[in-house]
């Protein structure tokens, strides 16, 4: 492989990995607090992409405004989903919430099918994103810089929120001991809603950037990235934001680089994530950065 190709693949990997990381954060935060896989999270990612499509194409909003609207709309969707489908099940066995989440996932996908139809739509791409930057022999799309950069900024912001603010403190406390946290005057429903809102906003940001990178939007576009991002969260250590970022970037790198070095494996691309998952779990059952949670006996 030439150096130029390697650089291009490197940026590709970074882009895909960043997007996985953004989605994975939502999984990891919800799992950290409620201990269930929010299967519908990947579909919020899809809805985010549709929102910006309709914002920019149908309502002719300027692009940045459409992006903000899509993020806010998706955050609201995440909160509503929690309110309707998950909150009634807080006291129920976790498996119930999980099945409810699978139901919501199919609901959103098929709702997308009914409302948006199954036809893939082209994403609206601002000019400056599609004109490649040429450095010698290397052609790189600006989006390949933008995605990792935006991701880094968003993750920094999130880390600041979680580690430096009071709601963040409450989030970290809830993930370990809901009852005690309530005793300190924390309203858990509000904090959980905030968690869903933040996670969904990040997923929507990922959805928007995904649509810029792979400009095709369809109702099932969230399924595979969703599964893979969850796997990234597990690989990184579920409950850990840094772990989700690490897992996402790792997964993106493995996918892109394996195909880059062994093109004959390209058909298996969707299976890498699952193989990586099983291998990692065999050696580190709590993921790369996950803390060991003791079972109470």
């Amino acid at each position: 492989m030439t150096f130029e190709l390697f650089i291009q693949n490197f940026f590709n990997a970074l882009t895909v990995g960043s997007l996985y990381a953004l989605i994975a954060i939502g999984y990891t935060m919800v799992y950290g607090i409620l201990r269930f896989i929010n299967f519908a999270h990947g579909d919020v990612f899809m809805v985010g992409a549709y929102f910006i499509f309709f914002g920019a194409a149908t309502f002719a909003l300027p692009w940045p405004l459409a992006a903000v609207a899509a993020i806010v709309g998706s955050a609201a969707l995440g909160i509503i989903v929690d309110r309707i489908a998950y909150r009634p099940l807080r006291e129920a066995p976790r498996i119930s919430a999980l099945i409810s989440a699978i139901g919501v996932s199919f609901l959103l996908e098929n709702l997308g099918l009914v409302i948006f139809t199954g036809l893939p739509r082209p994403a609206v791409q601002p000019e400056w994103m599609v004109n490649p930057i040429i450095l010698g022999n290397i052609r790189i799309l600006p989006i390949s810089f933008i995605v990792p950069l935006v991701t880094a900024v968003l993750v920094m912001g999130l880390l600041w929120l979680v580690y430096r603010t009071r709601p963040g403190l409450a989030m970290r406390a809830i993930s370990r001991d809901i009852e005690t946290t309530r005793l300190m005057g924390v309203s858990i429903d509000r904090i959980i809603a905030l968690t869903f809102g933040l996670g969904s906003a990040l997923a929507a940001a990922a959805g928007i950037m995904w649509a810029m990178r792979y400009p095709q939007i369809h109702p099932f576009m969230g399924v595979m990235p969703g599964f893979k991002a969850f796997i990234a969260a597990v690989v990184g250590g579920i409950g850990s934001i840094q772990g989700a970022v690490l897992g996402g970037v790792l997964l993106g790198t493995v996918e892109i680089m394996a195909v880059a070095f062994y093109p004959e494996l390209s058909g298996y691309r969707d299976a890498f994530a699952f193989v990586l998952l099983i291998v990692i779990l065999l050696f580190r059952p709590t993921g790369l950065l996950g803390e060991k949670l003791d079972d109470k006996i």
Partner: peptide, 28 residues
């Protein structure tokens, strides 16, 4: 052998992964 050690949701996602691997494998 590998997945039975995982509890609850991990088992779910690992078995889901298995099914996906089978599907990809059969396609290729």
């Amino acid at each position: 052998f590998p997945v039975m050690r995982l509890g609850g949701d991990y088992l779910g996602i690992a078995t889901l992964g298995f099914a996906e691997i089978i599907r990809v494998l059969f396609t290729n």
